[in-house]
């Protein structure tokens, strides 16, 4: 198990180093002058030069890269070009929105998808299966921003139960904060649940066709017990993989939903930073996301080993 973990962590570290080089290089190539973008079309050449100096853009690229890496290792993400605050503060302000949102959405989608998937698999070909998979098909097909707008019209504009968007901050209390996250979480969770339910169903079907299930049933074990204890555990590998991918997506890939609900999440921070050429923020956030993907993958790998002891040895 220790060798398994060490290997996984080593791979993760290499991924991070490669990612840092790629991110930095890509942003260097990206056309656009952050100083010009900040000062606009009427700026004098002297003002632009002074701004570039302030932003630290006059240093050669390798020097800036090494300075950045040294900072990262010391936990210093640098200072934003546009917002004049430290990058880490900007990221933390957004993480307190994006992380709870991702967790609520993931919990919601898992809570819906796994029972539905098992239910469908157990009733393969019958009416319940057809209906739930039909709805799941619809859930995959419906664009989440459109669904989000529907939710806004019903619950915010019409019923006035929940805010149409925005985030009051956790300082305003837990309930106002959660209230602001309910609609976006539902909008994010349902399409994800649809995908997860389909994956769960097909993984379950595959496992249910295995010999050991028949053996277990032949030994006289109750159907329900076989389904939950024997089948589900073995069907978890693909389900966990998808959940891991979904979590990474939910953390920063939700820019569209963040725009619809004007939530100050990580996705919008990256998007805004790219359009404003706030390179240091883009670099910081991307590294953080790479790190989170690496960590999530590591957790998924460990969970594989938990659900399937054979993988502990093979690694």
């Amino acid at each position: 198990m220790i060798a398994f973990l060490a290997k996984r962590i080593g791979i993760g570290a290499i991924t991070l180093i490669v990612a840092s080089i790629v991110v930095f290089a890509v942003l260097e190539i990206l056309p656009g002058d952050p100083a010009l973008l900040m000062l606009g079309m009427n700026a004098t050449p002297e003002a632009l030069a002074a701004m570039r100096e302030q932003m630290g853009l006059n240093e050669p690229v390798p020097v800036r890269y090494l300075g950045w890496i040294a900072g990262l290792l010391a936990g210093d993400f640098g200072r934003s070009f546009t917002y004049s605050s430290p990058v880490i503060d900007l990221i933390l302000e957004r993480v307190v929105v994006s992380l709870p949102l991702a967790l609520i959405a993931l919990t919601l989608s898992t809570a819906i998808a796994i029972p539905v998937g098992i239910f469908s698999a157990a009733r393969r070909g019958r009416a319940g299966d057809t209906v739930s998979m039909g709805v799941a098909q619809l859930g995959v097909a419906v664009p989440n921003f459109w669904f989000a707008l529907l939710l806004v019209y019903v619950f915010a504009v019409w019923l006035r139960l929940l805010p149409a968007g925005g985030f009051p901050g956790w300082g305003a209390g837990v309930w106002p904060g959660l209230k602001a996250l309910i609609l976006p979480a539902v909008a994010l969770a349902l399409p994800q649940a649809a995908i997860l339910a389909r994956v769960t169903r097909s993984a379950m079907l595959e496992v249910l066709g295995e010999d050991y299930i028949r053996t277990a049933r032949a030994k006289g074990m109750p159907r329900r017990y076989v389904l939950w204890r024997h089948a589900l555990r073995n069907a978890m590998i693909p389900v966990l993989t998808i959940m891991g991918l979904q979590f990474s997506f939910l953390l920063a890939g939700t820019i569209i939903i963040e725009n619809v609900f004007y939530l100050p999440g990580l996705g919008r921070l990256v998007f805004q930073a790219i359009t404003q050429r706030d390179l240091i923020v883009v670099e910081g956030v991307v590294m953080l996301l790479v790190a989170s993907v690496v960590v999530v993958n590591l957790i998924v790998d460990i969970l594989y080993a938990v659900v399937d002891p054979r993988l502990r040895i093979r690694a």
Partner: peptide, 18 residues
């Protein structure tokens, strides 16, 4: 001053009174 970056979100923001 509330940031509403999306045109599609601007209308519901007004209609809901936010």
């Amino acid at each position: 001053f509330r940031i509403v970056p999306d045109a599609a979100a601007a209308i519901p923001a007004l209609l809901s009174g936010d």
